[in-house]
Amino acid sequence: MPASWTLAVARGDLGRTTFVDGVTPALSDGEALLRVDRVGLTANNVTYAVLGDSMRYWQFFPPDARGLGPQWGLPPLWGFAEVIASAVPEVAAGQRVYGYLPSAGHLVVRPHRVDASGFRDASRHRAELPSPYNAYRSTTGDSAYRPDQEDLLILFRPLFFTSFMLADQVVDNGFYGAASLVMSSASSKTAYATAFELHGRGPRLVGLTSPGNLAFTRSLGCYDEVLSYDDIGVLDVGPTVYLDLSGAPSTRAALRRHLGDQLVRDIAVGLTNQTPNADAAEEVFFAPVQMRKRSQEWGREGLDQRFTEAWQRFTAVVSGWLDVRVGAGPEALRNAWLEVLGGRTPPRVGHVVQL
């Protein structure tokens, strides 16, 4: 079998990395082998590592299967892979799929519920993990796929799905009766994709960001107002919903002091740095919960159709907001990881690595 490689990070020190060489395993009946081809790296991937234990993200790609001890973890990535061998009659070699991938050259999956749209990985260790991460979409059966937009899918699809479901939940709840909706980390992809979905549909949208990102965030045109974190005191005092994507305790504290009981909803969405924000918020948004609700109400095809329509609206403008930086090879993947982990990636830049 051909040689393979794995990039792992120390679970207790995410800036410490190691490469391990190995051999891709032989397949058993019911398995297929994916070659990891092209992946992205954003703050979302750092989130997976930061919450790797509490949210079980480390469990998707066990290190022991690759000759590594439990102190190491494989950061999950989103991107494209190619089926290079298959012991599943319905899954043909050469098929290209989009999904959740390890920081490694190969992945063995156990395809289940195979249809024109792709398959799900039914490997035993993933059976109790959140199901949205186990889906692998075939490029030939994916209504959102376009060959010239692969890098946008790599960088934005999982983030945009979160944004789409977050915006949907806010609308579904009548904007919680708010006059203003304030979003932290407004320069982040998840935040401005959410704002893009919500702009013009209800309350005034206010983005909070660091002074260095003010110009970029204002240039997007999807917020009614963009302020520095230092200017929270100028916000209008009225019924306000806070969507916290930054995880900065000081921002929440400043909003609570300024707005008092006019802060009608405080929702933790995630984090773009390494400060967990879930404990301090009144509630936590988790996209699969709203997805399950809408899947029951709209059906899977209805949800896919609405997502595709929103995605097409978004991709019509987002390419003008993004500079894709493409690296090649495992070492470029490590360098991108360390840059994103260190917060050194400008908001206009998206890292894609061709492996």
Rank of each mutant, 00 (worst) to 15 (best):
L7Q: 10
G12C: 02
G22N: 10
D29A: 14
G30H: 03
E31A: 09
L33G: 06
R38M: 03
R38D: 00
G40D: 04
V46T: 07
A49Y: 03
A49P: 00
G52W: 04
S54N: 10
M55H: 11
A65I: 00
A65R: 06
G67F: 02
P70Y: 13
W72P: 10
G73I: 13
P76V: 08
L77Y: 01
F80S: 03
E82A: 13
I84P: 01
A85G: 09
R96I: 14
Y98P: 05
G99E: 00
A104C: 12
G105E: 00
V108L: 04
R110K: 13
P111T: 06
A116V: 13
R120Y: 03
D121G: 14
R126D: 00
A127S: 12
P130R: 08
S131V: 11
A135N: 03
A135V: 13
S138G: 08
G141V: 01
D142G: 13
D148Y: 01
I154F: 02
R157V: 01
A167N: 06
G174K: 11
Y176S: 08
G177Q: 09
A179N: 15
A179Q: 15
A179I: 11
L181S: 08
S188H: 04
T190Q: 00
A191Q: 02
Y192T: 10
E197R: 15
E197S: 09
R201T: 10
P203D: 00
V206Q: 05
V206S: 09
F216C: 07
S228Q: 01
D231K: 13
G233Y: 14
L243I: 12
G247H: 08
G247Y: 04
R257N: 00
H258D: 01
D261T: 15
Q262P: 05
Q262G: 09
L263R: 14
Q274S: 06
P276Y: 12
A278H: 12
A280N: 01
V289Q: 06
V289E: 07
Q290D: 11
M291W: 12
R292N: 04
Q296S: 12
Q296C: 08
Q305L: 09
F307E: 03
T315A: 05
V324K: 07
R325Q: 14
G343L: 08
G343D: 03
Q354Y: 01
